[in-house]
Nucleic acid binder design. Structure first.
Lengths: 260, 260
DNA sequence: CGATCTGTTGACTGTTATCAACTCCGGTGG
DNA sequence: CCACCGGAGTTGATAACAGTCAACAGATCG
């Protein structure tokens, strides 16, 4: 696990938000970090006095988990390149616990690095801000997802979103992505019971939209999945589009979610 | 509708997020604004080329509304002092439409004012950032609310949240607040059907938790409502308050997300 | 005084939760 | 090598919850 690897996913992510110069990227290369491996369903270790670090996801997925109600709820999922607790730079208290979905690798980076980074480069400062605003847009979309769609569309939408986000950092180009998620994880993210999550996935398979065998999800019918989910990736973008190869598809969704 | 009124709610809100000096507040007094009255369920008027303004809620409530599924979904509600589209400073495209719940009064303020404000005062810059991070925390809580609670607790939680937010800007001190919401609005925010919203409110009344007659909600049993909702106002706060009734339970998650 | 929007009620339907059992699989130790 | 174990996935039966439809009551306003 080299230092070079530690910053490359973050660089991909930031570059997907705004234009960065070679000079900006050099600043990133100096990022001091400790690498941590996290086991499935374990929290990112943070002692209470260690609130002066952020974590950068390098490999795998982290999720913000809150034990509430019967099953607990996952309120966000973070992919490689994300900095799930960037807000801790300004809001010292941690809300939900960050736990790994499957095993994950993170880099622990001191707050001071990000403070200096944004002081040195306005583009970087802007990129970090946009990363937080993108989180906000994603969170709004989860609200929409949980509030207005049935279980089938919810699950489909979540898979669409993760695919699109993972593609933004150069993974899953072939519509096939690592899925260390258990079905219970998926249920906790979609606000449904594990049993119903299972039946929902089976229905997606039965319709020929995706395969999910072992630890890999392969999307068989991307347009079909997008239509079913009512997925519009606009909210994931920060630039007024135009340039940048858009990941898979950008099909505007009209009124009424498509339900068979 | 004086200019003085236009900035006072915003000042209350920002002061609730971080410490502001008299000098900071003077900067706010110079805020240039056009006042707009908005009728119930009408969008905040914004021509497509007018993306260089933000709106500050002065009176009433705004909501972010997306027509999706059968009933549409409200993904956020904004109270006096909020700047619902502050993110448009950095992300020009608007996602959901802002519509008024009941009639509302907003101030339209050019982006340039906020840019200059944050350039002139670091405390103001920080306050504006914290306002956006608070929005993020609120949005996460909506995700939790929609994903993990039944209709009764959802409605109770929403009412708790709005009450707490409105109190932060000096309103509803007596647990009695203006509620121009229709029951359908409430349903759209909680992701339930209007009919079920009606029955849920009746149940809350029946339990003696609140009264909702005409356009005023009066909370009769605040502790009871908080208990039913599982409401913990920590996420609304930006300052680390060491002493609080119920610290966020940091219950470490053992293996298996969904443990019965 | 009718028009319209909001709130209210009842009957019925449909989705999802719950419970319990069983299978399948990868590990681990005898 | 095999027996066992635990976690994950799968299935069926039943119950709880929420959605839909339709009708009516109450308020507000021209």
């Amino acid at each position: 696990m080299q230092a070079g690897f530690a910053f490359s996913k973050l660089a991909d992510r930031l570059a997907s938000l705004t234009d960065l110069t070679a000079q900006d990227l050099e600043l990133l290369a100096d990022m001091p970090s400790a690498i941590a491996n996290i086991e499935a369903h374990q929290p990112v270790l943070r002692r209470h006095d260690e609130t002066d670090i952020c974590c950068v996801v390098l490999q795998g997925y982290l999720s913000r988990y809150i034990a509430e109600g019967q099953h607990g709820q996952i309120t966000s999922i973070h992919v490689p390149g994300d900095v799930p607790d960037l807000h801790s730079l300004y809001q010292p208290h941690a809300k939900g616990n960050l736990i790994a979905l499957g095993s994950a690798v993170v880099a622990l980076v001191p707050h001071s690095f990000f403070h200096e980074l944004s002081a040195k480069s306005t583009a970087m400062s802007r990129a970090l801000l946009l990363m937080q605003l993108t989180d906000l847009a994603i969170q709004r979309d989860w609200t929409l997802n949980l509030g207005s769609r049935d279980a089938l569309a919810r699950v489909a939408h979540l898979i669409c979103e993760i695919t699109a986000r993972v593609q933004a950092v150069g993974l899953a180009r072939d519509l096939s992505l690592a899925s260390p998620f258990t079905q219970s994880d998926l249920a906790a993210a979609c606000g449904i019971s594990p049993v119903h999550a299972n039946r929902t996935i089976q229905e997606l398979r039965r319709r020929g939209l995706l395969r999910w065998h072992g630890k890999i999800i392969t999307i068989v019918d991307w347009p079909g999945l997008v239509r079913l989910a009512g997925f519009d990736p606009a909210y994931l973008r920060s630039l007024p589009l135009a340039h940048r190869a858009r990941p898979p598809q950008c099909q505007p969704v009209s009124k009424g979610v498509a339900v068979a």
